[in-house]
Design a protein around this nucleic acid. Structure first.
Lengths: 255, 255
DNA sequence: TCACGATTCCCGATCAACGGGAATCAGCGT
DNA sequence: ACGCTGATTCCCGTTGATCGGGAATCGTGA
């Protein structure tokens, strides 16, 4: 069968899939690129890529800068803020995160559960900085971060089973990668009411996280700080618990 | 011609348009709704709405809660943070906004120019609150807000022409709605280096805004506070200018 | 039990999207 | 000046993915 006469036919994946593939070609480190480049990365012919990119630019989901490079549009951010859930939480948490940050003087972070990972909603950086693992909108595995352990420990049982059944990649020598060890750790977290993760992500850093409850009393987020490896943790734990309680209160949680 | 035999044919608007229409059915006050409801608001038949919503949920752009209500997904927020431009600005501005907020003790806001309106990227609320016009991701017209006037005064000339040529809706009796008056105001803003908008938006409030420059020296944002109508403005003006300068410096602006 | 709305499933008709290809444009090195 | 490379736009014949009416199913509240 001759291929020179082949038809140009639709690709077979939905418009939505293609859109996500295109948006995914943007990464935190590559925030601008040409339409052709997008096409190459998304597996689209140049001509198709241009047509779609132009549509998206017209719709405001993408933007072009002065050199016609394409970047993600503010419109998308605007639409994304309509997702009340996280935004409301972030808003409520902000003032108290600032207080923690002012008193503990270390990176202060707020994370939620998202697709079996800890997704960081907000981060106030330490004035006298240090390590920089987490980013706003960054993710960390549940078993290897203090925030993740809190979200896991207070999360639904089937989540725990799913995560414990999957491979637990260690990030450092200290990371818990044995299901039984993680299970014990989770019990400890539930008993203490907070998670301490010494060196799980970076040898030199210890994460400390507490659960944050919404107005229904359900744990919806983890509030955390990152301390130097062998700093005194007690003060941070107290401050975190206080902030978590105040956030829950400001969301309307009683008792 | 009998209509009962009519074909089912594509709508004529691109998939992108439909996506935006669907996302636009979500508003800050209506953040969850059923698929059928989305269809009704977006002008889509129920069956079509369901198909598309299901696709979007599968792609992570929308989510369903426990009652199968649909809401905007965190995935969208995550993708939107890839738009470096605004995020970088917000990150750089945050610490200095906090300082302004701590010292002036009034609503402190950061806005950028977006589609001929002032789009608010961030807002730190006054502890002793008061009016609440601006919201994060909210918009205000350029001619009627201190932030807008700054963005307009230091923006490209063709933007000024376009805005002055369009109808200038007054929000209060004090709002400048005459093109000539706005033109004079813009000259004043350029001369003073900041904008004072007494009662333009709300009778009882005065907005004060200063331009924020990026590393190239271009004005990319407006930093503003909202004061009670006849509060002393000088202190706020000084603080705002200092913060704007520090933000520009932290972005790498020299001189 | 019934009624109503949301949701899923099915399916034939249609046309908007697809992408190869050619032309154009822009920058760059020689 | 001149080709070379890559981005971009335009054209156009083909076709299968999209569309939505309709029916069945599920869920809930009266």
């Amino acid at each position: 069968m001759p291929s020179w006469g082949m038809a140009n036919s639709p690709t077979g994946d939905s418009a939505t899939d293609r859109l996500v593939r295109i948006l995914d070609t943007f990464t935190p480190t590559r925030t601008v690129q040409t339409a052709t480049e997008i096409g190459r990365r998304a597996g689209l012919p140049s001509s198709t890529a241009h047509r779609i990119v132009n549509e998206l630019v017209a719709a405001g989901l993408l933007e072009r800068d002065e050199e016609r490079q394409v970047r993600i549009g503010m419109r998308l951010w605007e639409l994304s803020t309509r997702s009340s859930h996280a935004l409301r939480l972030r808003q409520a948490a902000m003032p108290f995160m600032e207080r923690v940050q002012a008193r503990v003087r270390e990176h202060t972070q707020l994370a939620i559960l998202e697709q079996d990972e800890a997704l960081f909603l907000e981060r106030l950086s330490s004035p006298d900085s240090g390590s920089n693992i987490t980013r706003v909108a960054g993710r960390l595995p549940l078993h290897a971060s203090s925030s993740g352990l809190v979200l896991l420990a207070f999360g639904p049982a089937e989540l725990q089973e799913r995560v414990l059944a999957s491979p637990l990649a260690p990030l450092t020598r200290a990371t818990l990668s044995d299901p039984q060890a993680v299970r014990r750790k989770l019990a400890e977290v539930r008993q203490l009411g907070h998670a301490i993760a010494p060196g799980y992500i970076e040898e030199v850093a210890t994460g400390i996280a507490v659960p944050v409850r919404d107005e229904t009393g359900q744990v919806v987020a983890a509030l955390s700080v990152v301390l130097p490896r062998d700093a005194e943790a007690d003060f941070a734990v107290v401050e975190l618990h206080r902030a978590a309680r105040d956030i829950a209160r400001s969301l309307g949680y009683r008792s």
